[in-house]
């Protein structure tokens, strides 16, 4: 009886897990297959029929040359905003995390508490206030209006804090002080070289968040030459006859071309995911709890 019970639960588990594998993977697989087909084939043929390289070449050519290589421009913008934000975030969050973990100063606990609050609060809640603020200093429309808010990354500070307080023993730093290091030297020679895992973690989380961010650049950057990829995707969506039959077909953006743009938009994050897979699973937990 127990044995049958066990076998039955296991079989049931695998059926459910495989069903959800289909749910999660079919859209990704369909997306990767679709540029190999023409728009007409997408409608008329089996969804998983194989297309041709010729069609892929056509879709890629049309998509990349669209509006004078807009896609490449969006890609470049996305890269500048994401990495600009990450770079500044790293410069400030690593010393901050170290300072919070290993120095004493008045207001330290308060700063830690505020960091925690801002980190938990969804970043989207601050987008319109940030816009109103940027608008009052006439910064709307400049790339810095996106990069600087990106560079404020409290989660990164918290990760650095957790890392320094749990993995870098106070004794190690005290030993350096006895050897004559001043506070800055202790940080630069001992703590900073140990920060490599933090750099990786912060870069990963900030990259995924920045790269996919839609709302902030959407309100801050009204000019299409400044668009990052997500806003570019919306721009494509509004001009394509595939979803807006009223739009003329002269721009030549149909479903296969849209799929190319979507793949270009997701590819960098997907690549990062594949590389970070191992450290990711532990990182997800490290970020949310302190052992």
């Amino acid at each position: 009886m127990r044995f049958f019970n066990r076998v039955w639960t296991r079989t049931f588990s695998y059926i459910v897990l495989l069903a959800f594998t289909a749910f999660f993977m079919v859209p990704v697989i369909w997306l990767l297959f679709s540029p190999f087909k023409t728009d007409h084939q997408l409608i008329s043929e089996n969804p998983f029929a194989l297309g041709t390289l010729e069609n892929l070449g056509h879709a890629v050519r049309v998509m990349f040359t669209f509006e004078d290589y807009s896609l490449l421009n969006w890609l470049k913008n996305s890269a500048i905003y994401s990495f600009g934000g990450i770079f500044i975030a790293l410069i400030f969050s690593i010393p901050a995390g170290y300072g919070l973990a290993h120095t004493q100063f008045i207001g330290r606990r308060t700063l830690l508490g505020i960091t925690l609050f801002v980190m938990i609060m969804p970043a989207t809640a601050l987008v319109l206030p940030l816009f109103l603020e940027a608008n009052s200093v006439h910064a709307v429309g400049t790339p810095l209006a996106v990069i600087l808010p990106f560079s404020f990354f409290p989660f990164g500070v918290y990760l650095a804090y957790i890392f320094y307080s749990s993995s870098v023993p106070k004794d190690l730093l005290a030993a350096a002080r006895i050897d004559g290091c001043n506070e800055w030297d202790v940080f630069r020679r001992i703590a900073l070289p140990l920060a490599r895992p933090i750099v990786a973690l912060v870069t990963f989380f900030a990259f995924v968040a920045n790269w996919n961010n839609f709302f902030l650049p959407f309100v801050m950057l009204p000019n299409s030459t400044n668009y990052p990829l997500p806003i570019g995707l919306q721009d494509l969506l509004s001009t394509t006859p595939a979803f807006n039959p009223g739009q003329g077909g002269q721009v030549g953006i149909y479903r296969p071309e849209l799929a190319v743009a979507t793949i270009v938009a997701m590819a960098p994050v997907m690549i990062v995911f594949l590389f970070a897979q191992r450290s990711l699973v532990s990182g997800l937990l490290a970020g949310s709890t302190k052992e």
């Binding site: 010393p95 170290y98 120095t103 700063l111 801002v118 601050l126 409290p154 506070e183």
Partner: peptide, 17 residues
């Protein structure tokens, strides 16, 4: 030293948080 370490982040927090 503590203030020096957190000052940059503090400015970001003040300006953008």
């Amino acid at each position: 030293a503590g203030y020096a370490f957190v000052s940059g982040y503090f400015i970001l927090l003040a300006l953008f948080g």
